[in-house]
């Protein structure tokens, strides 16, 4: 990690998890990182001419075209004989799982030498909190309001990590801004692999999640500790868990401290707990669980 700051003076909300994910990744990758940012929070807060907050080369792509622009940048620089760079994309959950999934799938299919990082704040936060396919069950957004009949989002969170891994990608990982050393290790590991790499980092949004601005790191850590967000890696066809929670506690406290889940009933929370437990049953049976991940 370098001491330089490559994402500085940006206009993200106080306590923004996404900006922390971008800042740390760029500090790991260094000044030769070429960043691609589609429409989303990080391009909205990073490029407000004349306030330009990226100190490395960075460009805004179309919403759907993060991965295809990365492909083009990588091919272009390679054609010019430049080799010491990393083409890295930072797309939000909507820009990855909804709008950009086709371009991402294509890039993985071609095995282009790019690093795609999805900072997942679990809704379209930039436009005022609309549901994306990575919004978890029960979350209140402006398009999935909480009322008497519907308790927020009716659908579960799309499993983007395993969708990407199912392509047979070179390297995929999940991370959390609550576990920065683990995230940094994964970014470093990804940058050393040739081929397509995908990292999915959970990045709480104080505004959209209904938490205080100083809680975002803590919530991201808690989500891992209570087993809701699994830190894992995929490489050479194998899944492995990087950090396994000691036990699977009740989710009442973790869920209820977030404003977006305030309306959930005990039955709703019991359902979330059962989903989490069955996921861990599957993981324990089929994945390698080694502290520290794939060696």
């Amino acid at each position: 990690m370098v001491e330089d700051e490559f994402f500085y003076g940006h206009k993200a909300c106080a306590g923004c998890g996404g900006s922390l994910a971008v800042r740390i990744a760029l500090k790991v990758l260094g000044k030769r990182a070429v960043a691609v940012l589609p429409a989303g929070c990080m391009s909205a807060v990073g490029f407000n001419f004349p306030q330009l907050c990226f100190a490395n080369n960075a460009i805004i792509s179309t919403f759907a075209g993060t991965a295809s622009m990365l492909t083009g940048i990588e091919a272009g620089l390679r054609a010019k004989g430049i080799t010491d760079f990393v083409a890295v994309g930072f797309a939000g959950d909507g820009g990855t799982a909804d709008i950009g999934i086709q371009a991402l799938s294509g890039a993985i299919d071609r095995d282009d030498d790019i690093l795609y990082i999805c900072y997942d704040n679990e809704a379209y936060m930039n436009t005022g909190i609309q549901k994306s396919s990575l919004t978890p069950f029960g979350a209140k957004t402006t398009t999935t309001p909480a009322g008497k009949n519907a308790h927020g989002n009716l659908r579960p969170k799309k499993n983007m990590f395993e969708i990407v891994a199912a392509h047979g990608i070179k390297y995929a990982a999940t991370a959390s801004i609550g576990y920065l050393p683990d995230y940094m290790k994964k970014v470093q590991r990804a940058s050393e692999i040739k081929g397509t790499k995908y990292i999915h980092v959970i990045a709480p949004c104080p505004t959209g999640w209904g938490i205080a601005s100083d809680e975002s790191v803590e919530i991201a850590k808690e989500a891992v500790d209570c087993g809701l967000w699994v830190l894992a890696e995929y490489k050479n066809g194998n899944y492995s868990v990087s950090i396994k929670p000691k036990n699977l506690p009740g989710l009442q406290t973790h869920i209820k401290r977030q404003g977006r889940f305030k309306h959930l009933t005990d039955d709703d929370i019991a359902y979330v707990e059962s989903q989490r437990d069955s996921k861990w049953n599957f993981i324990n049976q089929h994945w390698t669980v080694t502290q520290g991940g794939i060696k």
Partner: peptide, 15 residues
């Protein structure tokens, strides 16, 4: 395209 890392305003007033 423009110069990278070009800041013209502070964020101190948000605090």
């Amino acid at each position: 395209a423009y110069e990278a890392g070009y800041l013209t305003s502070k964020n101190a007033g948000w605090r």
